[in-house]
Amino acid sequence: MLAAFLHRNGDAEPPRSNPTIMAAHNIVVFDLDGTLIDSAPAIAASVNHVRSVFDRAPLGVEVVKSFMGDGVEAVIDRALAIDDGDPAVDRAAALRLFLQHHESDAAHDIAIYPGADALLERLVADGYVVALCTNKLTRLTLPLVAKLGWADHFRSIMCGDTLPTRKPDPALLWSAIAQCGGGKAVFVGDTRVDMMTAREANVPFILVHRDNGYAGDLKGTSKTADDLDTLRSKIDASFL
């Protein structure tokens, strides 16, 4: 399954238009971090490992949460730019340190949000086609999805380095929908980046609203769910 994702997504080309009119599938596309899993403590641990190497004080999890949503490179840049007056750091070296740490110890601190397992299983069992659209790197996403036992749930997994662009560019979301065969779709996420992606792609959006520290001002979001247990009814209503 992972090999198939690597082959399919590695050869992916962004569609030139919204593929939601292509077929009759009902497609639910999920963001990953902050939507299905709580990865903030693990990401903060890796960020603070990088900061310790460069003799900088650790940051709290809530601070690191505020940096998330635009991919790991942005997290690293923001985590290092917060120290006014400190000397510049080699960005490539900092990213390597982050990835080395995150691929070893930090991933053990990732928690599944309550209801995520059951929601994914029920959606697939009820005939929905499910996909993942994340700005997380492929090398971090695919092993994690396999470890969580979710690989068989997702028809498509689009990552932050699958295409030349990433969210909020709509191509990543359109590609996920196209790989699912096209059809009516809804995107489920938790941040402004996710909302902007759905808006640019002209795909309905459901906000999983948590006090997560980095969702920001999401005024104008028409559908919200307080948690994954209440999300299912919002998803069903999107396809009426």
Rank of each mutant, 00 (worst) to 15 (best):
G115E: 05
R122K: 11
V63Y: 06
D217I: 02
H108K: 15
I82S: 09
S39V: 12
N26V: 09
G85D: 11
V124Y: 07
K147V: 00
V53N: 03
L144K: 10
G181L: 01
N212W: 04
A107I: 13
Q100K: 12
A225R: 04
S104F: 13
L36D: 06
H101Y: 12
R51E: 00
G182Y: 05
A198C: 07
A178I: 08
F98D: 04
F205P: 00
D117C: 09
G181A: 06
L120N: 01
K223S: 06
W174F: 10
E62F: 11
R122M: 09
A57M: 14
G69A: 15
D190P: 01
G115T: 07
V29Y: 03
S156M: 02
P14K: 03
D190M: 05
T221N: 09
P204E: 02
R96I: 07
A106Y: 11
E200M: 14
D229F: 15
D55S: 14
G183I: 10
D11F: 08
D161E: 07
H102I: 00
D105T: 13
D77R: 10
C180V: 07
R139P: 01
N135A: 04
S104H: 13
F239D: 04
W150H: 04
A198E: 09
L207E: 11
W150F: 11
A93R: 15
V203D: 00
S175N: 09
S222P: 11
Q100H: 11
R199F: 14
A111F: 10
H209C: 14
A237M: 04
P58S: 04
E103M: 15
F154N: 02
I206H: 05
A23K: 12
A151E: 15
T191G: 12
V29W: 05
P41K: 03
L132D: 00
K65V: 06
G189N: 05
D31S: 02
V188Q: 00
H102D: 05
D86A: 13
E200V: 08
L142W: 02
A94R: 05
R96P: 06
A92R: 13
T35M: 14
V28T: 03
V28F: 01
N212I: 00
P14V: 11
V53T: 10
T162L: 07
P19T: 02
A201Q: 03
G189Y: 05
K234H: 12
L173S: 08
A3L: 14
S233E: 15
N135L: 10
V145W: 11
C159W: 06
F239Q: 00
F154Q: 08
L80N: 04
A81Q: 08
N9W: 07
R210G: 08
A23C: 11
D90H: 06
A74Q: 15
S17W: 09
K136L: 01
P168S: 06
D83I: 08
T224M: 15
